[in-house]
Design a protein around this nucleic acid. Structure first.
Length: 849
RNA sequence: GGGCCGAUAGCUCAGCUGGUUAGAGCACUGCGUUUACACCGCAGGUGUCGGGGGUUCGAGUCCCUCUCGGCCCA
């Protein structure tokens, strides 16, 4: 059933975007591009289904849905996968080889890998990711995503690189991007700068070491630090301005132990009197707080740790005492770890430790993919303004956040917390090989020194460019690296600098202005909550500076998938479920039901039970439809106008359609509010009472036992109800609903219009009839169940008592009730007006055969 | 330390703007299979709505507070 329908959907092109649509008809979705080199995860099925359900709903509501899908194949995960798969290594200084082909099989030893240019490397990435993407596409197709597969992009393809570089150049021209030599978080393993958004704090054991700085008259200021190795990089001491213990020292100088460097004592409110001894040493640089102090107190720079994570080899000139210079030689060239041991040893042997080291556990910053603590080094980097250093821009971004409808609403505070906590601009240059090159060159002066303040920019028409293999405009390749020549910017852009442009990439910004104006700003950004600080925020930043608008008007934040014990799924725990398993076992509709029954924003357990329910629901839909068609129901029986409505004569039938009218009304509202889970809940409970009660009640009539008019009434009701129900369930259960649709209708349910509540006005009666009859039905069934007889047992007689009005309703459907319960005689007794409930008594059952 | 979310049946959850006896599915128990459905149906029991205070004619729902979990940020 599923492959057959998928083929039909493709052939009928029902998910193709209608590019002739006007802007107000369009519903555009900025879908998350999955990392194609990553592994498939049930979480993919979960969140992508939630988006698809909304896409299908909007499509049926008459919107022209722009539903592209991209692949994120830019960045470190792809870089690693391509290296290992082909056995190649990238060297950006290598020239491009147009006819390069990789080794047939990768060399075992990394030293024997091919060394290739960045352009060649990118080409291999494109080749391999196309294969990886196929796996994802197959999964998403099997899942029934109504993506327009003509609208795909890859974050490393020419168009994406061009868009990323174009956006960068525009930011440079508007001064939203700039280059600066500044202290930067640095990963010593990957040897790259890292942005605030990529930080991860991890709890690590550490210790406070206490040792004294002294003034000329023998007074001691004992500082406490977790990083004693940075003592030679100390530029000042700092304490809180209100701290009485240290007030007398402010403005004076003290001398560091071991190295004999004289440093001032400063006051700053960021110094925490409760932490350590209340007075800290400021080093360039131990962490970002040091950077803040250094900047705000205008301190000198005495950097020691290099990009390789080692202490510089030459003894720094600010250490002037003979003892200090000797001591530094103990540290020169050492790693941070070894230097710490050496300094502690020197302090210990010098009797300078004022207490036993105090062991603590503290948060240490790591690059999210790294395993060594980040260092702070000074380097030249590119930045994009993001409000981290500019209150006005920050307020602007907060204001943009309030212009977006967040689903669920509370996720906006995640965004606001992040924006308010920014401590600097967005660092976008990365010292990696693979990625979108920063499209600039620098002129070299007569001495061969680069002029970073006057970068050479390409024309937009040249994009994408690779400054590592293409000469700067106006220069010849032979002038690369030569005095009075040029040099290419060696760095690449942060992957988020490209991913932040998915609306522009998918919407073909500057490539198809007509399309772009129709889809941008997008209507929806679906994504998970863990990347609000990265993807969502960075997309906001770019749309703000490039287009002076929000990138979308709605964002739907999906939760995570947890294992059934509510633990996060991860490979290391071995609790990861391969998505194809549940798809094969339960079917796509069942998996979709599970995903669609979870609210947005809620972390959800992987529940096979929910899938079983979904499977049962889909099968029930097929079977109930089969029953209706078996009763002679056809397309002609659907009530389409007021005149046709006359055929529905039975109050019970009109009661059912009245209830259905309410269901249409409510589910539409819930869907419009992005609460598809609640919509599903409402339609599902209606459907179960439809099959359990209504269908059972009207079987006798449907078989024609009560005459032609009564049969015509039920046929029209079944046809009309089914017509509406199939459309209601279509977004969640696209396969089962379309399968049934094609049994008796033309085209696809997914091209049909969403039901209108008003269309049922002419056929709706009093819903209370069905309530009363269902209650009596349940009562009579209970009587049989309590008597422990078969439900098919005849009732010779029974008495039903209740309020007069309810009995009137029963009267109007008594033949159906009698037939469904095999009752020969049902006596309706209106006992007193105050009776609230329908009750059954004096049930006389026939003997069982 | 700050922010956000959650705590409802044995389990997974729903309960929207306060309104009658708090719901669903799973699990459990009983009955049932010729006429849409055993990938099944019917019926049934199940709750200090995390604790404590308050507002109200009325609180799972609103307010305060505490406890415990989770996530994000310091």
């Amino acid at each position: 059933m599923e492959p057959k329908l998928n083929t039909a959907w493709q052939a009928e092109q029902i998910y193709h975007f209608d590019s002739t649509a006007s802007r107000d008809q369009v519903y555009s979705i900025d879908t998350p591009p999955p990392t194609a080199s990553g592994s498939l995860h049930v979480g993919h099925m979960f969140s992508y289904t939630q988006t698809d359900v909304m896409a299908r709903f909007k499509r049926m509501r008459g919107k022209k849905v722009f539903y592209p899908l991209g692949w994120d194949d830019n960045g470190l995960p792809t870089e690693r996968r391509v290296q290992n798969y082909y056995g190649v290594r990238c060297d950006p200084t290598k020239p491009y080889e147009p006819d390069y082909s990789p080794p047939a099989s990768p060399a075992k030893n990394q030293r024997d890998w091919d060394v290739i240019s960045r352009q060649n490397f990118i080409e291999l990435c494109e080749t391999l990711t196309v294969q990886d993407e196929k796996v994802f596409e197959d999964l998403f197709t099997a899942l029934g995503l109504s993506v327009d597969w003509r609208q795909t992009y890859r974050t490393i393809d020419d168009d994406s690189r061009a868009a990323s570089q174009r956006a960068f150049l525009r930011e440079v021209c508007s001064e939203n991007a700039y280059t600066a030599e500044a202290p930067t978080l640095w990963d010593v393993t990957f040897r790259t700068a890292v942005a605030q958004a990529e930080l991860e704090a991890k709890e690590r054991p550490g210790a406070y070491y206490r040792y004294p700085f002294t003034d000329g008259s023998g007074n001691e200021a004992v500082i406490a630090t977790t990083r004693p190795e940075l003592l030679p990089a100390c530029v000042a001491l700092v304490a809180h301005p209100e701290d009485e213990r240290y007030k007398p020292l402010f403005g004076k100088t003290v001398t560091s132990p071991l190295f004999g460097v004289e440093v001032p004592v400063k006051a700053h409110p960021l110094a925490d009197p409760e932490k350590g001894s209340g007075i800290a040493m400021i080093c360039t640089f131990g962490d970002m707080t040091d950077v803040t102090w250094w900047r705000e107190l205008q301190l000198p720079t005495r950097a020691l740790i290099g990009r390789d994570g080692r202490f510089q080899r030459e003894t720094p000139e600010w250490i002037t005492t003979a003892e200090g210079r000797t001591n530094y030689e103990q540290l020169a060239g050492k790693t941070v770890h070894s230097a710490k041991e050496a300094v502690v040893e020197l302090l210990t042997s010098g009797g300078l430790l004022r207490a036993e080291p105090e062991k603590i556990t503290h948060a240490v910053h790591f690059y999210e993919k790294g395993d060594k603590p980040l260092e702070v080094v000074t380097s030249r980097q590119w930045y994009i303004r993001n409000g981290g250093r500019d209150a006005q821009r920050r307020d602007q971004l907060l204001e943009r956040g309030r212009k977006i409808d967040w689903h669920p609403g509370f996720m906006r505070s995640r965004y606001e917390n992040w924006v308010e906590g920014l401590n600097g601009d967005w660092l976008i240059s990365r010292q990696r090989f693979f990625g979108v090159p920063i499209p600039v060159w620098y002129p070299l002066n007569a001495a061969g020194e680069p002029d970073y303040d006057n970068p050479i920019l390409p024309e937009e028409s040249q994009l994408p460019v690779d400054p590592a293999s293409q000469p700067a405009p106006g220069f010849d390749e032979s002038q690369r690296g030569q005095p009075d020549g040029f040099m290419g910017e060696p760095d690449v852009l942060d992957t988020w600098a490209t991913s932040s442009l998915t609306p522009q990439i998918a919407g073909k910004w500057e490539r198809d202005p007509e399309l772009f104006n129709k889809v941008f700003p997008f209507d929806l950004r679906p994504q998970a909550h863990d990347i609000i600080r990265t993807w969502l925020f960075s997309t906001m930043v770019r749309a703000n500076s490039l287009h002076d608008t929000v990138p979308w008007t709605n964002t739907a934040i999906s939760g995570w998938i947890l294992d059934p014990d509510r633990k996060k799924m991860s490979k290391s725990k071995g609790n990861v479920v391969v998505p194809t398993e549940p798809l094969e076992q339960f079917g796509a509709d069942a998996v979709r039901y599970w995903a669609a029954s979870a609210k947005l924003g809620a972390d959800t357990a992987y529940e096979v039970g929910q899938m079983k329910i979904g499977r049962r629901l889909a099968i029930k839909l097929l079977n109930a439809s089969k029953f209706a068609f078996g009763m002679g129901v056809t397309e002609e029986h659907i009530v389409a106008d007021d005149a046709a409505a006359q055929v529905i004569t039975e109050p019970l039938d009109r009661a059912l359609l009245a209830k259905l009218r309410t269901v249409v009304d409510q589910t539409t509202g819930q869907f419009e509010n992005y609460d598809y889970a609640r919509a599903l809940d409402i339609m599902e409970s209606f459907f179960w009472s439809f099959t359990d009660d209504y269908v059972e009640l009207v079987k006798d009539r449907a078989y024609g036992a009560q005459g032609e008019a009564a049969q015509a009434s039920v046929r029209a009701t079944l046809a009309t109800a089914l017509d509406v129900l199939l459309r209601l369930f279509a977004p969640v259960l696209p396969f089962a609903t379309d399968e049934v649709w094609r049994w008796w209708r033309h085209g696809s349910v997914h091209a049909a219009a969403w039901p209108q509540a008003a269309a049922l006005d002419a056929v709706a009666g009093s819903p209370a009839v069905l309530d009363a009859v269902s209650e009596a039905l349940t009562g009579l069934r209970r009587a049989k169940a309590e008597a422990k007889v078969k439900q098919r047992t005849e009732i010779l007689s029974a008495r039903i008592t209740g309020p007069k009005q309810a009995l009137g309703y029963l009267e109007s459907a008594l033949s159906d009730l009698g037939a469904a319960t095999r009752a020969r005689a049902l006596e309706l007794v209106s006992e007193w007006e105050t009776a609230k409930e329908i009750s059954i008594s004096d049930v006389v059952l026939a003997d069982q055969e």
